[in-house]
Amino acid sequence: MTPPTSPASLFNPARIALYLLLVVAGVAVGMAGALVQGAWFPGGLLLVLLATTAFFYAGRRATGGPAGVLAAAAGWMLSFLLLSATRPEGDFIFAAGLGTYVFLLGGIVAAVMCATLQRLSEPPVPGARLGK
């Protein structure tokens, strides 16, 4: 998808649906990451950080800009906050530990990296003659 060129193209229904899909998928990725990073430490933590980074990058590619990363990261962070809150019974998913903090900070760093990526230039067409 190409980046929007006018304000009207920002609000078309397909683009809004894509951003909502990225938020919902971000919640799912965050929930899955919470379970995997805690179950298979430290290998699960590495796997989850790689998957989260790939998901954020896919959000950028799908929308053509950093807004896709923002939508995906918003869902991911929402799930992290909901799962780290304690319930009245004392239950929680995330315990305060090294793995949890690395997952949180690593996910934030991955989101910032994917959002601030510069667009790579197109490779030159072989055999093209410039200036003629």
Rank of each mutant, 00 (worst) to 15 (best):
L49Q: 03
L35F: 15
V27D: 02
E122D: 14
A74S: 08
R15C: 07
V125R: 11
G33Q: 09
P13L: 06
A72M: 02
A74T: 12
G99F: 05
P13M: 07
L83Q: 15
E122Q: 15
L105M: 04
L105P: 00
R129S: 07
G65L: 05
F80T: 04
L130G: 11
A39M: 11
L35G: 10
G44D: 10
D91R: 09
V48G: 09
T53E: 09
A32I: 13
V109T: 03
G38F: 04
V23T: 10
P126L: 12
G107F: 02
V109P: 01
A8P: 00
S121Y: 11
F94S: 06
M1F: 15
A67N: 09
A25L: 15
S9R: 14
L47Y: 06
L45R: 12
L20I: 06
P124I: 03
L46H: 00
A128N: 06
T53V: 00
L18N: 05
A62R: 11
R15Y: 08
M77V: 11
P123F: 07
P4E: 11
R129C: 01
P42N: 01
I108H: 00
G33I: 08
F41L: 06
L10H: 11
L22M: 04
S84Y: 03
G38I: 07
F41P: 02
L98Y: 09
L82V: 13
L117C: 03
A96S: 04
W40L: 15
R87E: 10
F103C: 09
S84G: 14
G75T: 02
V27M: 11
L130E: 12
A17M: 10
P123M: 04
G106M: 10
A54G: 12
M77W: 06
A51D: 07
L20R: 00
G131C: 09
G68V: 04
K132L: 15
P88W: 10
A58K: 07
V102Y: 02
G106V: 05
G59N: 03
V36Q: 08
A34C: 09
V23P: 04
L82S: 12
P123C: 04
A71M: 08
A73P: 01
C114R: 10
T86P: 08
F80Y: 13
A58Q: 10
A14N: 10
G64E: 05
G30L: 05
P42F: 02
I16F: 08
S79M: 15
A32V: 14
A111V: 05
